[in-house]
Amino acid sequence: MAEVFVCAGCGAGLTDSLTRVALPARTHQRYGHELLPALMEQGTYAVDPEPSGPPRRLWDTIGADEAAARGVFAPVPSLSFGPAGAILVAPGDTRGTVLIPERCDGYCLGLDGRAGPNLACAHCGRAVATRIDDCTLWQVVRLDPTAVHAIPSGGPDPTADWAELTRDRRAAPPIEPPGGWSPHWEAAVAVALAHLLAASGGNRVGVPAGLLTTTFGRALDELLPTEPAAKTLALALALAGPGLPTRATATAPAPAIVLVPQHPQTGEAWQPPAGTAEAVPLAADVWTYLAFHDDRRLVPAPGRLPDGILRDDPLPQHPWRAFHPDRRVLLRTLSRLPAVREPWLRAIHDRLGGRPS
Score class of each variant (00 low, 15 high):
residue 211 L to M: 13
residue 224 L to F: 03
residue 251 T to K: 13
residue 250 A to L: 14
residue 177 P to I: 01
residue 194 A to L: 03
residue 278 E to M: 12
residue 229 A to Y: 02
residue 242 P to C: 07
residue 217 G to L: 07
residue 196 L to V: 06
residue 236 A to E: 14
residue 195 H to R: 15
residue 180 G to I: 01
residue 221 D to T: 14
residue 192 A to K: 06
residue 290 L to C: 14
residue 249 T to F: 02
residue 188 A to M: 03
residue 199 A to D: 04
residue 186 E to I: 00
residue 252 A to T: 15
residue 247 R to H: 13
residue 263 H to M: 12
residue 293 H to L: 00
residue 206 G to Q: 15
residue 272 P to Q: 07
residue 188 A to Y: 06
residue 282 L to K: 04
residue 203 N to S: 14
residue 249 T to R: 10
residue 297 R to Y: 00
residue 233 L to N: 01
residue 249 T to A: 03
residue 216 F to Y: 15
residue 292 F to I: 01
residue 257 I to K: 05
residue 239 L to G: 10
residue 228 P to S: 05
residue 225 P to T: 03
residue 228 P to C: 03
residue 211 L to N: 00
residue 243 G to C: 04
residue 257 I to A: 04
residue 177 P to V: 04
residue 263 H to S: 14
residue 290 L to V: 09
residue 217 G to V: 11
residue 224 L to S: 02
residue 290 L to Q: 08
residue 260 V to E: 11
residue 243 G to W: 04
residue 199 A to H: 06
residue 187 A to L: 08
residue 238 A to Y: 04
residue 172 A to D: 15
residue 227 E to L: 14
residue 240 A to Q: 12
residue 190 A to C: 10
residue 279 A to Y: 06
residue 282 L to D: 07
residue 261 P to N: 11
residue 265 Q to Y: 05
residue 297 R to F: 00
residue 257 I to M: 03
residue 228 P to K: 05
residue 232 T to A: 13
residue 297 R to I: 07
residue 267 G to F: 12
residue 172 A to V: 01
residue 228 P to Y: 02
residue 204 R to I: 00
residue 295 D to L: 13
residue 262 Q to D: 15
residue 181 W to N: 04
residue 271 Q to C: 08
residue 208 P to W: 09
residue 231 K to I: 05
residue 216 F to M: 14
residue 260 V to T: 15
residue 276 T to E: 15
residue 217 G to Q: 09
residue 287 W to E: 11
residue 272 P to V: 13
residue 179 G to T: 00
residue 218 R to I: 10
residue 193 L to R: 07
residue 205 V to D: 10
residue 176 E to T: 10
residue 237 L to V: 10
residue 294 D to G: 06
residue 174 P to M: 04
residue 268 E to C: 08
residue 252 A to N: 13
residue 239 L to I: 07
residue 273 P to Y: 01
residue 231 K to H: 11
residue 278 E to G: 08
residue 291 A to F: 09
residue 193 L to E: 09
residue 216 F to Q: 05
residue 253 P to R: 07
residue 287 W to L: 11
residue 292 F to Q: 06
residue 276 T to H: 13
residue 234 A to M: 02
residue 292 F to T: 09
residue 285 D to T: 12
residue 199 A to P: 06
residue 263 H to W: 12
residue 271 Q to Y: 00
residue 276 T to R: 15
residue 242 P to S: 13
residue 213 T to L: 11
residue 248 A to D: 08
residue 197 L to T: 03
residue 247 R to K: 08
residue 274 A to S: 15
residue 203 N to F: 06
residue 213 T to F: 08
residue 241 G to E: 09
residue 225 P to I: 06
residue 179 G to M: 01
residue 261 P to A: 11
residue 191 V to L: 03
residue 228 P to Q: 03
residue 226 T to N: 14
residue 235 L to N: 02
residue 257 I to R: 05
residue 265 Q to P: 03
residue 231 K to P: 00
residue 223 L to R: 09
residue 218 R to A: 15
residue 251 T to W: 06
residue 203 N to C: 10
residue 182 S to L: 02
residue 280 V to I: 12
residue 278 E to K: 14
residue 205 V to S: 09
residue 179 G to Y: 06
residue 211 L to D: 09
residue 183 P to S: 10
residue 227 E to G: 12
residue 257 I to P: 04
residue 261 P to Y: 10
residue 219 A to Y: 10
residue 281 P to D: 08
residue 283 A to L: 12
residue 271 Q to K: 13
